[in-house]
Structures are given as structure tokens and as C-alpha cells.
């Protein structure tokens, strides 16, 4: 059982996301993270889903996804050389004159940027893979995280290989 990153190319039509996510819940597959957006083809969207399961279960998910008429292509990026990124926004308690400096130090170690400075809070923006974001969250927890927002993982294959419709 390990996380698998699936890249799913779909028709850019209303209801497609609900077909895809409905299939996951109906067949008892848990979605760890989900990211959706338009892609290089104007009439398609790309969904990146991270799902945990053994190889057989993941194979079954992919086959079931492929059966959806609006799904054009499904690829499991997990065993390939790939880049995976997630963006997180973290609102941390940081009263003036208290731990602000420490937090800003942590941010710089993680190459996070400070995108909002308030009287009582800072908002940090961090980009990285899941491990990095979770490590940073863990460190910031002691200062008090007021809100934590994540985009979900997106992934892309390294080199010339692509997940496209093959046209």
C-alpha cells in the first residue's frame, strides 16, 4: 500500500469531475488529494489524483476510470521519473515582537515566501512535494496554525515523455 499519483486527462465538460470522484467513492477508493485544471488542450482538463492502495486495487481504479466515456487517458506516474508539487498557504499566529523572526527563518529554510503580514498573523506560501509541506507544517505547529490550505498534488513526467491524448 503506497500512494499512487494518477494523471487523468478528461473532456472539459460539466459533470466530469463528479463522474470521476463518484467512481472513487462508489468503489471504495479513498482520494488522498485532488487537483484539477485546464491543460494544454483547450477542450480538455487534467485531474491529478493521489490514491493509496495496493497494485491490484490501483489497476482496478485505472481500468474503471478508463471506462468513463469522458476520460481520455489515465496514467500512473508513480513508478516513473517525475516532478510532483503542491502549494500550501499557512496562516500562522505571529504576534509582533514574539516568534516572528523564528517563523521567518523557518520560511527561508523551506524557501517559503511570506505573502501576507498582519498584526497578529503571517501567511506563508510553500511549494514542494507532500513530504516537504508536511515537514514545514509540523515545525510551524508550535506557533499555532490558524488555517492550512493545500492545492493537492500535481505531477508531470520528467524528460520528453507526456500524458497526452496521443493526437
Amino acid at each position: 500500500m503506497k500512494p499512487h499519483t494518477l494523471s487523468i486527462l478528461v473532456e472539459n465538460k460539466s459533470g466530469v469531475l463528479s463522474r470521476v470522484t463518484g467512481l472513487f467513492s462508489r468503489r471504495g477508493f479513498n482520494i488522498e488529494s485532488l487537483a484539477v485544471g485546464p491543460c494544454e488542450e483547450p477542450d480538455m482538463s487534467r485531474i491529478t489524483i493521489v490514491v493509496i492502495g495496493d497494485d491490484e486495487k490501483i489497476e482496478q481504479v485505472m481500468k474503471q476510470l478508463n471506462k468513463l466515456i469522458d476520460v481520455i487517458k489515465v496514467s500512473d506516474l508513480t513508478d516513473s521519473e517525475r516532478v510532483e508539487r503542491e502549494l500550501a498557504l499557512i496562516k500562522v499566529t505571529a504576534e509582533l515582537g514574539t516568534s516572528r523572526a523564528e517563523i521567518m527563518q523557518i520560511a527561508s529554510i523551506f524557501r517559503a515566501s511570506i505573502v501576507d503580514v498582519g498584526a497578529k498573523t503571517l501567511i506563508l506560501q510553500v511549494i514542494g512535494d507532500t513530504d516537504k509541506i508536511e515537514a514545514m507544517e509540523k515545525l510551524l505547529r508550535q506557533y499555532g496554525i490558524k488555517e492550512f490550505v493545500r492545492t493537492g498534488t500535481v505531477g508531470i513526467l520528467r524528460g520528453a515523455k507526456t500524458v497526452t491524448s496521443g493526437k
Binding site: 463528479s18 463522474r19 463518484g22 467512481l23 462508489r26 468513463l68 466515456i69 469522458d70
Partner: peptide, 11 residues
């Protein structure tokens, strides 16, 4: 009805 029948139709 398209929502209701999503899991029981081919499309």
C-alpha cells in the same frame, strides 16, 4: 436524473 443515474448508466 443524470446525477442519480451516474453510477448505473454506461453514460
Amino acid at each position: 436524473i443524470t446525477g442519480i443515474t451516474m453510477p448505473i448508466t454506461k453514460h
